[in-house]
């Protein structure tokens, strides 16, 4: 069999194996995205035929005060996700990587929230920040007896209270970065130590640059998750009225 024929035969099989994933992509991604794009230019109640209205929906959306607040919140949350959330996850990964005493326990305790649903996790925070019986207010009332703040319903506390729900929940970041750290050849560390490098120098000049891709991936995942974040807002602020999350 000639090389050319073998190549063509292989090519056919490549296409055959690509068919299912392409079909799934078209059915579940491409068609919905195109539908979203087309119907965004219509007035559509789901029962009657869509009525073409041009860019009126976008004009209305950009005119909403709640949309402008959403963009501002997204900018703030995006920045916090990229810097604090991912930073915390990376820090924990670096600490666990060094395997200090009790690292295994920390790893287990740190991973526990990942088996709790976001809804349950959010409700825990709702109780923590509750005005009448929450831990936060009860603690503050030890020093200021008349203290009363409805953390999830008052501006500007609502933004920060919702932020606390997810800010230090960086298990995914830690796992992704830790897997990258474990893939670094030991020879690199040994060579650095032989040259007299200190722990922090190895961390900053070898580990951190080599984890660039996993940290970048974590930032993408964390920041885009802020765009789609719904449960944390809906369950704590009952949908986040525009006047509450500012």
């Amino acid at each position: 069999m000639s090389g050319k024929k073998l190549g063509r035969k292989k090519l056919i099989w490549i296409y055959v194996f690509l068919v299912p994933i392409t079909a799934v992509f078209i059915m579940f991604y491409l068609v919905p995205i195109l539908t979203v794009f087309v119907t965004s230019l219509t007035k559509w109640d789901g029962f009657n035929a869509p009525d073409f209205i041009g860019i009126d929906n976008f004009r209305r959306l950009f005119g909403l005060q709640s949309f402008r607040i959403s963009l501002r919140n997204l900018a703030g949350w995006g920045l916090l996700a990229a810097v604090v959330h991912v930073g915390f996850g990376v820090l924990v990964a670096f600490i666990i990587f060094k395997a200090p005493k009790g690292a295994r326990l920390v790893k287990i305790v740190y991973m526990i929230p990942s088996v709790i649903s976001v809804a349950a996790w959010t409700l825990i925070y709702k109780f923590i920040f509750d005005d009448s019986f929450g831990i936060v207010n009860s603690f503050i009332r030890l020093f200021i007896p008349d203290f009363s703040v409805n953390w999830f319903y008052e501006s500007p506390y609502a933004f920060w209270s919702v932020t606390f729900v997810w800010l230090f929940y960086a298990v995914t970041v830690t796992l992704v970065v830790l897997s990258d750290l474990l893939a670094i050849p030991k020879e690199l560390h040994e060579a650095a130590y032989m040259d007299g490098a200190k722990e922090w120098q190895v961390a900053l000049k070898i580990n951190l640059p080599l984890c660039r891709n996993s940290i970048g991936t974590s930032v993408i995942v964390s920041v885009t998750a802020r765009i789609a974040m719904y449960e944390a807002i809906a369950l704590t602020t009952r949908g986040g009225a525009p006047e509450t999350i500012r």
């Binding site: 959403s70 765009i227 949908g239 986040g240």
Partner: peptide, 16 residues
């Protein structure tokens, strides 16, 4: 407030 909240509110109002 978040864009996804606006989206869900619009869906519940059947304003697709």
């Amino acid at each position: 407030m978040n864009i996804s909240v606006i989206l869900v509110n619009a869906i519940t109002d059947m304003n697709y």
